[in-house]
């Protein structure tokens, strides 16, 4: 009897090997938290050294720092020439241009593809189209940049009466738009598939055509998922670096994102400017070096906010269907 009891009370679950395994796996998972903390610390530290008010306190020479107000409010961004100027509005306007330009391409096309896949496509077409669309997302961004520079820009140059420069924002927006279509499509399609079939049946029962049901029942019922996909895709567009760096040039200028003509000129968004600073002539402790971190922090905060908003929208309205 006692042998059974002692068998029963043997602590196999707490043996060293079990403990070791558990802690190893926990450590792996905890690394992700370390990464986030690392990103925040690195960005914040670098940004602190960039701004005058905090940088001087950390031992930076005042000439190597920039005041917060000139960063936020000025419109000239010239890190490569003397005198160095660091007005965020210039690369920021380019980022907004990139966002709007790629939105014009990706949002309608992506939604159209999602509606087609969800409501109209036969199983065979779907099994072909879905992987095919994913290929769009699998092409490396440098390759898209190459496409924009070498094929799309010359084509545009011929089509547009006044011509476009070698570097311009239109080509960049086109390829980035194409690149993010799969994100819009797959998330929107999931949202539309999640709309219960009984709603479609109700629509048909009331004498609506398929077009009516798709547009007045399915899409509105999936709108939160669609909105969430839009925001996610645009946050990806904002974070896109290489395609714009190759296709749109290296100079940041303040432009009006709502002015279509502006898109035919070169411009350089926040991400591409970070690349520029890294490949340029930077001394390790100068303003140009720490500008990368300030830009990085701006970018990180914006994309994080967009991702969080997207998640909130989709989770808050997802509860509607049980």
């Amino acid at each position: 009897m006692s042998s059974i009891t002692s068998d029963l009370t043997t602590r196999t679950a707490k043996s060293p090997r079990e403990r070791l395994a558990r802690w190893f796996f926990f450590a792996c998972a905890a690394i992700s938290i370390v990464v986030t903390i690392g990103i925040v610390v690195v960005l914040v530290l670098g940004a602190l050294k960039f701004f005058r008010s905090t940088g001087v306190a950390l031992g930076m020479a005042p000439g190597d720092t920039v005041s917060l107000s000139s960063y936020l409010l000025e419109g000239k961004w010239t890190p490569g020439s003397e005198p160095q100027q660091f007005g965020l509005l210039a690369p920021l306007s380019a980022t907004v241009m990139l966002m709007l330009g790629s939105a014009i391409i990706a949002l309608p096309l992506g939604l159209a593809a999602a509606i087609y896949l969800s409501e109209y496509a036969s199983d065979r077409m779907r099994s072909f189209l879905k992987p095919a669309l994913e290929i769009l997302a699998g092409v490396p961004t440098v390759v898209y940049g190459f496409f924009a520079l070498v094929y799309i820009t010359p084509l545009l140059d011929q089509l547009v009466p006044l011509g476009v420069g070698t570097f311009n924002m239109v080509s960049a927006c086109i390829v980035v738009g194409i690149m993010i279509i799969p994100m819009v499509t797959s998330i929107s399609e999931d949202a539309m598939n999640a709309v219960p079939d009984s709603l479609r049946q109700a629509g048909y029962g009331l004498g609506a055509t398929k077009f009516d049901v798709s547009t007045t029942v399915v899409v509105p019922s999936a709108i939160s998922g669609i909105a969430s996909s839009y925001i996610l895709a645009l946050s990806r567009a904002i974070g896109e670096t290489m395609a714009v760096a190759i296709a749109a040039g290296s100079q940041s200028t303040v432009m009006n994102p709502l002015n279509p003509v502006a898109y035919f000129s070169p411009n350089s968004p926040i991400t591409a400017q970070m690349i520029q600073l890294a490949t340029g002539d930077i001394s390790a402790q100068g303003a140009a070096y720490h500008a990368m971190f300030a830009l990085g922090l701006t970018l990180f905060v914006v994309t994080l906010a967009m991702n969080v908003v997207s998640e909130l929208i989709s989770s808050r309205y997802r509860e509607v269907y049980r």
Partner: peptide
């Protein structure tokens, strides 16, 4: 017109 088993109002 048709009314279904499980209520299915539109959102």
């Amino acid at each position: 017109g048709m009314v279904f088993q499980k209520p299915n109002p539109f959102p």
